[in-house]
């Protein structure tokens, strides 16, 4: 026999999951949200999404190929996800040059500076988004209204997001019941007919994405459910204590980026805890921080900051929260 036998340590078969597989799964789960954004914001959202995705992939390629002189990893799809998630939390009239800058920051600083996929402590898309938010606050807080499909990119009429309305109204001393007349109905909120960043408006599309992710077992329920439940409980308590000053839980869930954050950003593999117990703790902390920032902070929305802050705590959570080892519970008898 002239052919050499192969020897390797066990196991000798492998599952079907691969990194690109999982990444493309997330992209598929994002399709409803992308479609919804195009439906509501038209060309603006098409431009924002395509620019962000293309520039993210391009920057990953260029930096890896020429600056780091490593093998490029654009085919694993993680750069596409970064671009998509970044674009989904931008307003539809965001200038193209700044989107490119945001992608560069997300990929270059948020991801590759730390050693690329698997080593970044913070979610790169959120790093990019927070960078843009801090650097260009004016452009990041003018939200075009969702008006159905439209062809022009820069829309003159901008409006406030529901959360903005509430925040500023409360600042002026209005009561919630009065402010609720100014914001869209729950039905509109659910289907996404409101001002906001392109990806976060349509709750129904995001929930469809969540269902897909759970069905394909790409993520587990722990993070999204614990974030959303915490927000519901926390805002519910505030609401019950003082309904004049606090919006109800349903409003909080449907408005702003909680769903997008809880389903797609907090669940990012690299930057979330490894154990289910850790995931639940992480989710609860994100929920609490979000509500605290929304209600008591100076920004109307806080999901991004909450997730980034908790990203920083993930190594600590991983160190202290261990899975339940086999043999820990000893039954007598």
């Amino acid at each position: 026999m002239n052919k050499l036998l192969t020897v390797s340590p066990s196991p000798h078969i492998y599952g079907k999951d691969t990194t690109p597989n999982l990444m493309y799964g997330v992209i598929i789960a994002l399709i409803p949200a992308i479609l919804a954004s195009i439906l509501y914001f038209g060309w603006g959202s098409v431009i924002v999404i395509s620019v962000a995705v293309i520039s993210s992939v391009l920057f990953e390629f260029l930096i890896q190929r020429f600056l780091l002189q490593k093998k490029t990893t654009i085919q694993d799809g993680s750069a596409v996800i970064t671009g998509l998630l970044l674009s989904l939390c931008l307003p539809s009239n965001f200038p193209v040059s700044l989107i490119i800058l945001g992608s560069l920051f997300a990929i270059g600083v948020g991801k590759l500076s730390f050693g690329g996929l698997g080593n970044n402590p913070f979610n790169p898309a959120l790093v990019g988004r927070v960078f843009l938010f801090i650097s260009f606050p004016a452009k990041m807080t003018s939200w075009p209204e969702a008006k159905g499909f439209q062809t022009q990119f820069i829309d003159a009429s901008t409006g406030a997001t529901p959360l903005n309305i509430i925040k500023e109204g409360l600042g002026k001393g209005d009561s919630i019941s009065h402010l609720m007349d100014k914001i869209p109905t729950y039905q509109q909120l659910f289907f996404g007919n409101m001002g906001g960043s392109i990806g976060e408006v349509a709750a129904v599309a995001l929930i469809l994405g969540l269902a897909y992710l759970l069905l394909r077992k790409i993520i587990t329920w722990h993070i999204p459910v614990s974030i959303i439940l915490t927000v519901v409980i926390f805002t519910g308590i505030l609401w019950l204590v003082n309904p004049a000053q606090n919006a109800d839980p349903l409003f909080h869930i449907l408005s702003g980026g909680i769903l997008l954050g809880a389903i797609f950003m907090a669940t990012d593999y690299v930057t979330s805890p490894m154990t289910s117990k850790g995931m639940i703790l992480y989710g609860i902390c994100i929920g609490i921080l979000t509500v605290v920032i929304r209600r008591f902070g100076s920004y109307p929305e806080g999901v991004q900051f909450a997730i980034l802050i908790m990203n920083g705590f993930v190594p600590l959570i991983n160190y202290y929260i261990k899975p339940k080892r086999f043999g820990e519970e000893v039954k007598n008898g």
């Binding site: 694993d76 993680s78 690329g116 996929l117 698997g118 593999y269 979330s272």
Partner: peptide
């Protein structure tokens, strides 16, 4: 071998 993406499947 690719870098670990910390998907936590091995822990699960």
């Amino acid at each position: 071998i690719e870098p670990c993406i910390r998907c936590s499947k091995c822990v699960t």
